[in-house]
Design a protein around this nucleic acid. Structure first.
Lengths: 230, 230
DNA sequence: ACCTGTCAAGAGCACTGCTCTCGAATTGGA
DNA sequence: TCCAATTCGAGAGCAGTGCTCTTGACAGGT
């Protein structure tokens, strides 16, 4: 038993080491990291890696999954650290945490939210972790509604078809949330993603030195749109 | 001279053919298209392609540049087709045109707005075409301000540093535009990019059958945020 | 008719993901 | 304790990639 767990422990350490080196390569090579290069860095034959990961895509998938979890943890932790009743500050904390994580791990963010790798199809295990960051934001809105701090926008603004669609989503995600409010919450998430992507993928770099302040302001705009009290 | 132009014409046709085949491969292979595969499709040796494009990245750059131009043309044409005074309809037309182009050319959209290719650096020629779609949207806002149909948001909402940054941008882009209004126009562009990316990169597919209506509503929200009259 | 510039093709280099085989090491049970 | 079974690393090899260089054929202008 001890022997078995020894082997298992060595194996687990090996897997961790491979993932660590792969993550490091990710920052320079992006999505097209080289198994052989990782193997070289580890001083082993490239074929040995296949003892631990059945394919390169599989290694990428585990990195993606762990990245989703890390991002979700960061956003939720930031939200949890704020007074539950201070909805606006919770909104800011969650958004800022997502941006901070993305700036600290740009390659992994690109893996999660960049263009999908052509041949690659995300397995089902990734959809639940992928939902956590947006669900955290939606949860803030839901709490605001429950606490009466937030009045839902008029449903008349919504065309009937999209109202029905969103009502279905709300029923499974956040029961009782009005469709029009859910739409605005999703707009906030979309905006957050767009802001981070633009900043990270560098289509905005020039002429906007105070990026933190700009980010905060744009996030504040969406907080207003959602209806979070100032 | 006739002979020379004949040679030039044949060469131009060859370049067009290579680009056409490469574009076709782009839809299936994404950013990592294979020069050799393109050459195979054209019935020529892979080395022959290098007579027309110095490198694979160079071919990609050409495709990217032409894609930017195509997208910019589509957005501007849609805007131009609407009565200049109907600002809200112009906003909708521009945004819908961008989405329609992206849905019709998903691979090229991913090339433009997806995660950047690791080793690849966008040349300066691309920054001007890349600015056209957002500038079109900002132009609509500018026209609305000039026509008095639109009252700028209070500048007090903007922190001083970002107000200065945006004022600099406004000065070179759209003189006279208040910083707070520019911020909201940029929010609209960010939202448009986020909406299209989410729809295209498939993180939303399930449970939202009426995508056109959803898109229209989210765009309408941003039109309201900018202050375009209904 | 003779250069000259252009072009396609082939061989070759270094790299990639991946498979298979073959010894060596480790493990669990008799 | 010893043996069979399992696990593991290394190497060779296949098919594919971008790219370079050389070679030979062709067309253009003089």
């Amino acid at each position: 038993m001890v022997a078995n767990s020894l082997r298992a422990r060595v194996r687990a350490e090996m897997i961790d080491e491979i993932k660590a080196v792969a993550r490091r390569h990710l920052t320079t090579d992006g999505a097209n990291l080289s198994l052989r290069a990782v193997a070289r860095d580890l001083g082993m034959a490239s074929s040995a890696i296949y003892r631990y990961f059945p394919s390169r895509d599989d290694l990428l998938t585990t990195l993606i999954l762990e990245a989703y979890v890390a991002l979700g943890d960061a956003v939720e932790a930031a939200d949890d650290a704020v007074d539950r009743d201070d909805l606006r500050e919770r909104w800011f904390a969650g958004c800022r945490a997502a941006r901070a994580w993305a700036l600290a791990n740009p390659a992994e963010y690109a893996l999660l939210y960049g263009s999908p790798v052509p041949g690659y199809a995300a397995p089902d295990d990734t959809v639940e972790p992928a939902m956590r960051p947006p669900l955290t934001l939606i949860g803030i809105v839901r709490d605001g509604l429950a606490a009466g701090q937030l009045t839902p926008p008029p449903a008349a603004d919504l065309p009937q078809p999209v109202r029905d669609d969103l009502a279905d989503i709300a029923a499974s995600l956040s029961p009782g949330m009005p469709a029009a409010l859910l739409a605005r919450g999703m707009a906030g998430w979309t905006q957050l993603f767009g802001l981070i992507s633009f900043e990270l993928f560098g289509r905005i770099k020039g002429g906007l030195p105070h990026r933190d302040d700009y980010f905060d302001h744009q996030i504040a705009l969406m907080a207003d749109l959602v209806g979070l009290p100032r």
